[in-house]
Amino acid sequence: MIRSTHLPLLVTLATFVLAYALCASQYPAMLSLRVVANLLTDNAFLGIVAVGMTFVILSGGIDLSVGSVIAFTGVFLAVILRDTSIHPLAAFALVLVITATFGAAMGAIIHYLEMPAFIVTLAGMFLARGAAYVLSTDSVPITHEFYNTLQQIYWKTASGGRFRLIGGVMILTFIVGALVAHRTRFGQNVYALGGGGTTARLMGVPLASTTIGIYAISGGLAGLSGIVFSLYTSAGYSLATVGVELDAIAAVVIGGTLLTGGYGFVAGTFFGILIMGLIQTYIVFDGSLSSWWTKIVIGGLLFAFILLQKGLTWASTARRKAATGFVTPS
Protein backbone atom coordinates (compact mmCIF):
# COMPACT_ATOMS: atom_id res chain seq x y z
CA MET A 1 0.00 0.00 0.00
CA ILE A 2 1.25 3.45 -0.87
CA ARG A 3 1.41 5.76 2.09
CA SER A 4 -0.06 9.19 1.58
CA THR A 5 3.14 10.67 3.02
CA HIS A 6 4.99 9.10 0.11
CA LEU A 7 2.66 10.49 -2.52
CA PRO A 8 4.41 13.85 -3.09
CA LEU A 9 7.70 11.98 -3.54
CA LEU A 10 6.11 9.72 -6.12
CA VAL A 11 4.62 12.72 -7.91
CA THR A 12 8.08 14.31 -8.03
CA LEU A 13 9.54 11.11 -9.40
CA ALA A 14 6.79 10.81 -11.99
CA THR A 15 7.27 14.46 -12.97
CA PHE A 16 10.98 13.84 -13.49
CA VAL A 17 10.46 10.70 -15.56
CA LEU A 18 7.76 12.39 -17.64
CA ALA A 19 9.84 15.52 -18.17
CA TYR A 20 12.87 13.48 -19.15
CA ALA A 21 10.80 11.39 -21.54
CA LEU A 22 9.40 14.54 -23.16
CA CYS A 23 12.86 16.05 -23.51
CA ALA A 24 14.29 12.84 -24.91
CA SER A 25 11.47 12.42 -27.43
CA GLN A 26 12.34 15.84 -28.81
CA TYR A 27 16.10 15.69 -28.45
CA PRO A 28 17.23 12.05 -28.25
CA ALA A 29 20.73 13.32 -27.48
CA MET A 30 19.51 14.29 -24.02
CA LEU A 31 19.49 10.61 -23.11
CA SER A 32 23.28 10.45 -23.34
CA LEU A 33 25.44 9.93 -20.28
CA ARG A 34 27.25 13.14 -21.15
CA VAL A 35 24.08 15.12 -20.45
CA VAL A 36 23.50 13.22 -17.23
CA ALA A 37 27.08 13.88 -16.13
CA ASN A 38 26.74 17.58 -16.85
CA LEU A 39 23.41 17.70 -15.01
CA LEU A 40 25.18 16.44 -11.89
CA THR A 41 28.22 18.70 -12.28
CA ASP A 42 26.30 21.88 -13.03
CA ASN A 43 23.89 21.43 -10.14
CA ALA A 44 26.34 20.07 -7.57
CA PHE A 45 26.54 23.23 -5.45
CA LEU A 46 22.77 23.74 -5.55
CA GLY A 47 22.13 20.12 -4.64
CA ILE A 48 24.44 20.21 -1.63
CA VAL A 49 22.87 23.35 -0.21
CA ALA A 50 19.39 21.96 -0.91
CA VAL A 51 20.14 18.99 1.36
CA GLY A 52 20.70 21.43 4.24
CA MET A 53 17.58 23.32 3.22
CA THR A 54 15.61 20.06 3.34
CA PHE A 55 16.52 19.61 7.00
CA VAL A 56 15.57 23.19 7.77
CA ILE A 57 12.22 23.00 5.99
CA LEU A 58 11.43 19.56 7.45
CA SER A 59 11.74 21.14 10.88
CA GLY A 60 9.31 23.88 9.88
CA GLY A 61 11.98 26.58 9.43
CA ILE A 62 13.64 28.43 6.60
CA ASP A 63 17.24 29.49 5.92
CA LEU A 64 17.65 32.54 3.70
CA SER A 65 21.34 32.96 4.43
CA VAL A 66 22.74 30.07 2.36
CA GLY A 67 23.26 31.95 -0.94
CA SER A 68 25.30 34.61 0.83
CA VAL A 69 27.21 31.96 2.78
CA ILE A 70 28.19 30.26 -0.51
CA ALA A 71 29.49 33.57 -1.87
CA PHE A 72 31.32 34.30 1.38
CA THR A 73 32.94 30.86 1.31
CA GLY A 74 34.13 31.38 -2.28
CA VAL A 75 35.63 34.79 -1.56
CA PHE A 76 37.14 33.59 1.71
CA LEU A 77 38.86 30.65 -0.03
CA ALA A 78 40.09 32.80 -2.92
CA VAL A 79 41.49 35.48 -0.65
CA ILE A 80 43.09 33.08 1.81
CA LEU A 81 44.70 31.03 -0.97
CA ARG A 82 45.94 34.18 -2.67
CA ASP A 83 47.34 35.88 0.43
CA THR A 84 48.62 32.98 2.53
CA SER A 85 50.39 29.71 1.90
CA ILE A 86 47.75 27.63 3.69
CA HIS A 87 46.97 24.33 2.00
CA PRO A 88 43.50 24.32 0.42
CA LEU A 89 42.45 21.31 2.52
CA ALA A 90 43.18 23.28 5.71
CA ALA A 91 41.31 26.24 4.26
CA PHE A 92 38.35 23.95 3.49
CA ALA A 93 38.29 22.70 7.08
CA LEU A 94 38.54 26.25 8.40
CA VAL A 95 35.71 27.58 6.25
CA LEU A 96 33.48 24.61 7.12
CA VAL A 97 33.97 25.33 10.82
CA ILE A 98 33.19 29.01 10.26
CA THR A 99 30.02 28.40 8.25
CA ALA A 100 28.74 25.64 10.55
CA THR A 101 29.32 27.89 13.57
CA PHE A 102 27.54 30.71 11.77
CA GLY A 103 24.56 28.42 11.18
CA ALA A 104 24.64 27.16 14.76
CA ALA A 105 24.61 30.75 16.04
CA MET A 106 21.52 31.51 13.95
CA GLY A 107 19.89 28.33 15.28
CA ALA A 108 20.67 29.38 18.84
CA ILE A 109 19.13 32.81 18.28
CA ILE A 110 16.04 31.26 16.70
CA HIS A 111 15.61 28.89 19.62
CA TYR A 112 16.59 30.92 22.67
CA LEU A 113 15.19 34.29 21.58
CA GLU A 114 12.13 32.59 20.06
CA MET A 115 12.58 34.60 16.87
CA PRO A 116 11.12 33.57 13.52
CA ALA A 117 13.72 31.78 11.40
CA PHE A 118 12.78 34.03 8.48
CA ILE A 119 14.01 37.19 10.23
CA VAL A 120 17.09 35.67 11.84
CA THR A 121 18.36 34.10 8.62
CA LEU A 122 17.49 37.27 6.69
CA ALA A 123 19.89 39.07 9.01
CA GLY A 124 22.37 36.23 8.44
CA MET A 125 21.98 36.72 4.69
CA PHE A 126 22.99 40.37 4.90
CA LEU A 127 25.80 39.63 7.34
CA ALA A 128 27.39 36.93 5.18
CA ARG A 129 27.02 38.95 2.00
CA GLY A 130 28.52 41.97 3.73
CA ALA A 131 31.43 39.93 5.05
CA ALA A 132 32.11 38.71 1.51
CA TYR A 133 32.22 42.31 0.24
CA VAL A 134 34.57 43.27 3.04
CA LEU A 135 37.01 40.55 1.97
CA SER A 136 36.95 41.61 -1.66
CA THR A 137 34.61 43.37 -4.03
CA ASP A 138 36.32 41.97 -7.11
CA SER A 139 36.20 38.49 -8.53
CA VAL A 140 39.33 36.79 -7.16
CA PRO A 141 40.71 33.94 -9.31
CA ILE A 142 41.94 30.78 -7.61
CA THR A 143 45.12 29.46 -9.19
CA HIS A 144 46.36 26.96 -6.60
CA GLU A 145 47.57 23.77 -8.33
CA PHE A 146 45.66 21.62 -5.80
CA TYR A 147 42.51 23.04 -7.38
CA ASN A 148 43.70 21.79 -10.75
CA THR A 149 44.32 18.39 -9.26
CA LEU A 150 40.80 18.24 -7.84
CA GLN A 151 39.27 19.48 -11.07
CA GLN A 152 41.07 16.78 -13.03
CA ILE A 153 39.48 14.01 -11.00
CA TYR A 154 36.70 12.52 -13.09
CA TRP A 155 35.37 9.27 -14.40
CA LYS A 156 35.11 9.32 -18.14
CA THR A 157 32.42 7.25 -19.83
CA ALA A 158 32.73 5.65 -23.21
CA SER A 159 30.55 8.32 -24.80
CA GLY A 160 32.80 11.09 -23.52
CA GLY A 161 30.72 12.20 -20.53
CA ARG A 162 32.73 13.23 -17.50
CA PHE A 163 31.43 12.47 -14.00
CA ARG A 164 33.44 15.00 -12.02
CA LEU A 165 34.39 15.01 -8.34
CA ILE A 166 31.92 17.70 -7.36
CA GLY A 167 28.97 15.70 -8.73
CA GLY A 168 30.16 12.80 -6.58
CA VAL A 169 30.36 15.06 -3.54
CA MET A 170 26.76 16.06 -4.13
CA ILE A 171 25.57 12.47 -4.41
CA LEU A 172 27.51 11.54 -1.28
CA THR A 173 25.91 14.49 0.54
CA PHE A 174 22.48 13.26 -0.49
CA ILE A 175 23.21 9.72 0.72
CA VAL A 176 24.56 10.88 4.08
CA GLY A 177 21.75 13.42 4.39
CA ALA A 178 19.12 10.74 3.75
CA LEU A 179 20.70 8.42 6.32
CA VAL A 180 20.81 11.16 8.94
CA ALA A 181 17.25 12.31 8.24
CA HIS A 182 15.60 8.91 8.09
CA ARG A 183 17.76 6.61 10.16
CA THR A 184 19.02 8.53 13.21
CA ARG A 185 17.46 9.89 16.39
CA PHE A 186 18.48 13.36 15.33
CA GLY A 187 16.57 12.92 12.07
CA GLN A 188 13.48 11.75 13.96
CA ASN A 189 13.74 14.83 16.15
CA VAL A 190 13.85 17.02 13.04
CA TYR A 191 10.57 15.50 11.84
CA ALA A 192 9.14 15.79 15.37
CA LEU A 193 9.99 19.49 15.42
CA GLY A 194 8.26 19.92 12.08
CA GLY A 195 5.20 18.07 13.35
CA GLY A 196 4.74 20.48 16.25
CA GLY A 197 7.26 22.17 18.52
CA THR A 198 5.10 22.19 21.66
CA THR A 199 4.14 18.55 21.33
CA ALA A 200 7.72 17.58 20.52
CA ARG A 201 8.88 19.28 23.71
CA LEU A 202 6.21 17.50 25.75
CA MET A 203 7.45 14.22 24.26
CA GLY A 204 10.96 14.98 25.45
CA VAL A 205 12.63 16.08 22.20
CA PRO A 206 15.64 18.29 23.00
CA LEU A 207 14.52 21.36 21.08
CA ALA A 208 17.62 23.48 21.65
CA SER A 209 20.20 21.00 20.40
CA THR A 210 17.97 19.92 17.51
CA THR A 211 17.32 23.45 16.28
CA ILE A 212 20.97 24.46 16.62
CA GLY A 213 22.04 21.24 14.90
CA ILE A 214 19.68 21.79 11.98
CA TYR A 215 20.96 25.29 11.23
CA ALA A 216 24.56 24.19 11.78
CA ILE A 217 24.01 21.49 9.14
CA SER A 218 22.46 24.02 6.79
CA GLY A 219 25.34 26.48 7.36
CA GLY A 220 28.00 23.79 7.06
CA LEU A 221 26.48 22.42 3.85
CA ALA A 222 26.32 25.97 2.48
CA GLY A 223 30.06 26.10 3.22
CA LEU A 224 30.61 22.78 1.45
CA SER A 225 28.52 24.10 -1.41
CA GLY A 226 30.74 27.19 -1.48
CA ILE A 227 33.84 24.99 -1.74
CA VAL A 228 32.24 23.05 -4.60
CA PHE A 229 31.20 26.30 -6.27
CA SER A 230 34.77 27.62 -6.06
CA LEU A 231 35.98 24.39 -7.65
CA TYR A 232 33.31 24.78 -10.33
CA THR A 233 34.21 28.41 -11.16
CA SER A 234 37.88 28.58 -10.01
CA ALA A 235 37.13 31.94 -8.46
CA GLY A 236 35.55 33.70 -5.52
CA TYR A 237 33.16 36.58 -6.15
CA SER A 238 31.07 38.39 -3.57
CA LEU A 239 28.24 39.01 -6.04
CA ALA A 240 27.93 35.33 -6.95
CA THR A 241 25.02 33.02 -6.05
CA VAL A 242 22.52 35.77 -5.32
CA GLY A 243 19.13 34.15 -4.83
CA VAL A 244 20.46 30.60 -4.62
CA GLU A 245 18.60 30.19 -1.30
CA LEU A 246 15.36 30.61 -3.25
CA ASP A 247 16.43 28.04 -5.85
CA ALA A 248 17.20 25.66 -2.99
CA ILE A 249 13.79 26.26 -1.40
CA ALA A 250 12.15 25.68 -4.79
CA ALA A 251 14.04 22.40 -5.24
CA VAL A 252 12.97 21.23 -1.78
CA VAL A 253 9.31 22.05 -2.41
CA ILE A 254 9.30 20.55 -5.91
CA GLY A 255 10.92 17.55 -4.22
CA GLY A 256 7.71 17.06 -2.27
CA THR A 257 8.66 18.42 1.14
CA LEU A 258 5.84 20.27 2.86
CA LEU A 259 6.82 23.91 3.35
CA THR A 260 5.20 23.92 6.79
CA GLY A 261 7.43 21.08 7.93
CA GLY A 262 7.08 17.51 9.09
CA TYR A 263 6.61 15.74 5.77
CA GLY A 264 9.14 15.05 3.03
CA PHE A 265 12.22 13.11 2.00
CA VAL A 266 15.83 14.01 1.23
CA ALA A 267 15.61 11.86 -1.91
CA GLY A 268 12.74 14.04 -3.12
CA THR A 269 15.01 17.07 -3.06
CA PHE A 270 17.47 15.19 -5.29
CA PHE A 271 14.80 14.79 -7.94
CA GLY A 272 13.71 18.38 -7.39
CA ILE A 273 17.25 19.44 -8.30
CA LEU A 274 17.30 17.14 -11.34
CA ILE A 275 13.96 18.51 -12.58
CA MET A 276 15.23 22.07 -12.33
CA GLY A 277 18.50 21.11 -14.06
CA LEU A 278 16.58 19.29 -16.76
CA ILE A 279 14.56 22.39 -17.62
CA GLN A 280 17.77 24.37 -18.02
CA THR A 281 19.32 21.66 -20.19
CA TYR A 282 16.23 21.60 -22.39
CA ILE A 283 16.49 25.34 -22.94
CA VAL A 284 20.15 24.98 -23.86
CA PHE A 285 19.27 22.25 -26.35
CA ASP A 286 16.47 24.32 -27.81
CA GLY A 287 18.78 27.27 -28.28
CA SER A 288 16.07 29.75 -29.25
CA LEU A 289 14.31 30.03 -25.90
CA SER A 290 15.28 32.71 -23.43
CA SER A 291 16.87 31.26 -20.29
CA TRP A 292 14.22 33.08 -18.29
CA TRP A 293 11.82 30.37 -19.34
CA THR A 294 13.56 28.30 -16.67
CA LYS A 295 12.15 30.63 -14.03
CA ILE A 296 8.67 30.53 -15.55
CA VAL A 297 8.56 26.73 -15.64
CA ILE A 298 9.94 26.49 -12.11
CA GLY A 299 7.34 29.00 -10.97
CA GLY A 300 4.59 26.93 -12.58
CA LEU A 301 5.92 23.73 -11.02
CA LEU A 302 6.06 25.35 -7.60
CA PHE A 303 2.43 26.41 -7.87
CA ALA A 304 1.46 22.93 -8.94
CA PHE A 305 3.26 21.36 -5.98
CA ILE A 306 1.81 23.83 -3.50
CA LEU A 307 -1.68 22.98 -4.81
CA LEU A 308 -0.89 19.28 -4.57
CA GLN A 309 0.25 19.63 -0.96
CA LYS A 310 -2.81 21.67 -0.05
CA GLY A 311 -5.00 19.07 -1.68
CA LEU A 312 -3.34 16.26 0.27
CA THR A 313 -3.75 18.20 3.52
CA TRP A 314 -7.44 18.71 2.80
CA ALA A 315 -7.92 15.09 1.93
CA SER A 316 -6.27 13.87 5.10
CA THR A 317 -8.14 16.26 7.42
CA ALA A 318 -11.43 15.37 5.78
CA ARG A 319 -10.70 11.72 6.41
CA ARG A 320 -9.77 12.34 9.99
CA LYS A 321 -12.98 14.24 10.62
CA ALA A 322 -14.99 11.31 9.38
CA ALA A 323 -13.18 9.08 11.84
CA THR A 324 -13.63 11.48 14.75
CA GLY A 325 -17.25 12.43 14.35
CA PHE A 326 -18.76 15.24 16.35
CA VAL A 327 -16.50 16.96 18.83
CA THR A 328 -17.99 18.35 22.02
CA PRO A 329 -17.60 22.10 21.79
CA SER A 330 -17.58 22.63 25.55
Partner: peptide, 12 residues
Protein backbone atom coordinates in the same frame (compact mmCIF):
# COMPACT_ATOMS: atom_id res chain seq x y z
CA UNK B 1 2.95 13.95 16.29
CA UNK B 2 0.54 13.16 13.46
CA UNK B 3 3.29 13.29 10.82
CA UNK B 4 5.32 10.46 12.38
CA UNK B 5 4.39 6.79 12.17
CA UNK B 6 2.71 5.00 15.05
CA UNK B 7 5.96 3.28 15.99
CA UNK B 8 7.98 6.48 15.75
CA UNK B 9 5.53 8.17 18.10
CA UNK B 10 5.66 5.29 20.54
CA UNK B 11 9.46 5.24 20.68
CA UNK B 12 10.43 8.88 20.04
Amino acid sequence: LPNLTVAENLYL
